[in-house]
Amino acid sequence: MPLEESVFLETSRLRLRRFTEADADELVRLDSDPRVMRYLTGKPTPRTEIEQTVLPAILRDYARGPAGRWAAIERASGEFIGWISLQPPEDGSTTELELGYRLTAKVWGRGYATEGARAVLHKGFAELGAERVWAQTMAVNGGSRRVLEKAGLRYVRTFHVRFADPLPGTEQGEVEYELTRAEWRRTGLAAGTP
C-alpha cells in the first residue's frame, strides 16, 4: 500500500499510519518494556500473542470502518515510537470511540501522547462523526491522566474491577475520562489543528 494511502493523519511531529504485518517486531519491542507495561499487564506481551491475536485484530479493525489503532512514527527520524488509537466498538461504529495510546518510554515527556491524542480527537469529532470519546486508566497512572486532561478530556468517575492477579495500585481503582462533541465545540478544541 502506498504511504499516502496508509497515513491516517499527520501532526507537526508525528505520522499516524496503518499497521501492517511487518510491524510485529515493533509491537513486541514496545510491549517488552516493563515501564510501558507497568499499568497495563505488568508483564511483556508474548510474541505469539502479538502475532496471532493483537496484530490480526488491529488489521481487522481497518476493514470495519475508519477508526482503529495507528502506528505512531516520529516524522523527524522515521522511527516507530508506539501507537495511538480511537478504538471503535465491535460493530465498527464511530459514535463512541475509546482513546488509547502506548508509546516507547524513551519519548515520554516530550508531548507526543498529548499531540497525538489531540489530533485523533479532532479527526474523530470533525470527520468520523464521534459524539463521545472516552478513555480509562489506573487511578495511580498520573502520567496517562495528565495526557488525558491536556488533550481536553474530563474526569468522569473512579470504579473498581476485580483482577485475578492485580497490579500494584489496583486497589485505588480505574478512572474514566470523556469528551463529548458538544464539549469539544464549546471549549474551542474544535478550532485547534492537529
Rank of each mutant, 00 (worst) to 15 (best):
residue 35 R to S: 12
residue 147 V to I: 07
residue 41 T to S: 14
residue 32 S to K: 00
residue 126 A to Q: 13
residue 145 R to M: 03
residue 81 I to K: 04
residue 37 M to H: 01
residue 37 M to P: 02
residue 62 Y to H: 03
residue 100 G to S: 13
residue 15 R to V: 12
residue 187 T to N: 09
residue 173 G to T: 04
residue 181 R to H: 13
residue 136 Q to E: 14
residue 125 F to E: 04
residue 118 R to L: 05
residue 141 N to G: 07
residue 105 A to L: 05
residue 159 F to N: 02
residue 84 I to G: 06
residue 193 T to N: 11
residue 34 P to K: 01
residue 50 I to Q: 01
residue 77 S to H: 04
residue 32 S to T: 04
residue 94 T to D: 01
residue 185 R to M: 11
residue 170 T to S: 15
residue 15 R to W: 00
residue 13 R to N: 08
residue 155 Y to R: 10
residue 12 S to E: 15
residue 59 L to A: 06
residue 61 D to M: 14
residue 81 I to C: 08
residue 6 S to K: 09
residue 90 E to K: 11
residue 96 E to C: 08
residue 17 R to T: 09
residue 41 T to V: 10
residue 151 A to R: 06
residue 176 E to W: 02
residue 86 L to Y: 03
residue 168 P to M: 06
residue 80 F to A: 11
residue 54 V to R: 07
residue 178 E to T: 03
residue 3 L to V: 11
residue 117 A to M: 05
residue 186 R to N: 04
residue 88 P to S: 09
residue 63 A to M: 01
residue 173 G to S: 07
residue 57 A to I: 00
residue 98 E to T: 09
residue 114 T to M: 07
residue 172 Q to D: 14
residue 30 L to F: 11
residue 24 A to L: 09
residue 165 D to T: 10
residue 29 R to G: 09
residue 123 K to W: 12
residue 125 F to H: 07
residue 114 T to E: 07
residue 134 W to E: 11
residue 68 G to D: 03
residue 146 R to A: 15
residue 157 R to Y: 00
residue 3 L to P: 12
residue 124 G to S: 10
residue 149 E to C: 05
residue 142 G to M: 03
residue 58 I to K: 01
residue 141 N to D: 12
residue 180 T to F: 05
residue 53 T to P: 00
residue 129 G to Y: 06
residue 134 W to D: 02
residue 31 D to H: 15
residue 18 R to Y: 00
residue 75 R to L: 11
residue 19 F to Y: 14
